[in-house]
């Protein structure tokens, strides 16, 4: 119960803080729209036979990752700048329970971006939003957001000892967009790319959302997104203890 309360309040307050930042709120909604617009123009002018909703959904989920990658990379650096990292590490609550709701709040902001992209596609490019299985769709969206937030959690922990971690998070934006199949079918990539894609929660998230919208029930993919997300959380929990121990032992927690 205590863990649930820490996670819920953590998520709520982090959301409020993120929404106060124009970088994390307005830009988080606007920036993916530019990429979506380019993709819509390309698919509209091209000779591909897939429905435009295919690219619209992909572009929409791109926004969720976009809102998570760079902010998650710099999450701990931000805490350092605010002078709150040491306090949070020293708190009796496990540090992972403080960090996880932060990265999930980041990916939750991506829901605004998703909605904006789908609306943009509908209003400007005439892309109809017809959902074949609304129940699966409604389940797939939070599952995707949570699993992408969990991936952000692993990134935040992995980069704990890098001063310029935001750059590493930023660098991962395009590769995940590319190999998760947001806009490009995985079949177009060389064979060795696919196993990497399968390890990424966004791959299963977009499959679940796209499946629910275009084909029908996609509960298997929803389960995979949640399963991979849970694996990230376990990995993050293991990493966070080691990273904090190393940072304390070497006196590098407050790298400034």
């Amino acid at each position: 119960m205590r863990v649930a309360r820490v996670l819920a309040y953590g998520w709520f307050f982090r959301m409020k803080m993120l929404m106060r930042s124009s970088f994390n709120s307005w830009l988080g909604v606007l920036y993916p729209l530019f990429f979506a617009t380019v993709a819509f123009f390309m698919f509209k002018a091209g000779a591909d036979s897939k429905p435009l909703l295919y690219s619209s959904l992909g572009a929409a989920v791109m926004g969720v990752w976009s809102n998570t990658a760079t902010p998650a990379g710099s999450a701990l650096a931000q805490e350092r700048w605010h002078g709150t990292l040491e306090l949070e590490v020293a708190a009796p609550v496990n540090f992972a329970l403080i960090l996880l709701p932060l990265t999930i709040a980041m990916s939750t902001i991506g829901i605004y971006s998703m909605a904006a992209t789908l609306l943009w596609g509908w209003a400007v490019f005439g892309i109809p939003l017809q959902i074949t299985d609304p129940v699966a769709f409604v389940l797939a969206v939070p599952a995707t957001v949570a699993s992408i937030g969990a991936l952000g959690f692993v990134l935040a922990v992995a980069f704990v000892r890098f001063r310029q971690a935001w750059a590493l998070g930023n660098m991962l934006e395009y590769p995940v967009w590319l190999i998760s199949g947001f806009l490009v079918p995985l079949s177009l990539f060389p064979g060795w790319v696919r196993p990497i894609s399968w390890l990424l929660a966004p791959t299963w998230g977009i499959r679940a959302i796209r499946g629910a919208a275009l084909a029908g029930p996609s509960y298997g993919d929803i389960g995979m997104a949640l399963g991979v997300g849970a694996a990230y959380v376990v990995l993050g929990l293991l990493l966070v203890q080691r990273a904090l121990h190393a940072a304390r032992a070497k006196g590098t927690l407050s790298l400034t």
């Binding site: 993709a39 390309m42 698919f43 934006e173 395009y174 590319l178 806009l183 490009v184 079918p185």
Partner: peptide, 17 residues
């Protein structure tokens, strides 16, 4: 990053034909 931006759009271009 520029390499991955190039790859992203090359593959979108291939997909969109």
């Amino acid at each position: 990053m520029p390499i991955f931006q190039i790859l992203l759009f090359v593959y979108i271009g291939r997909s969109a034909k």
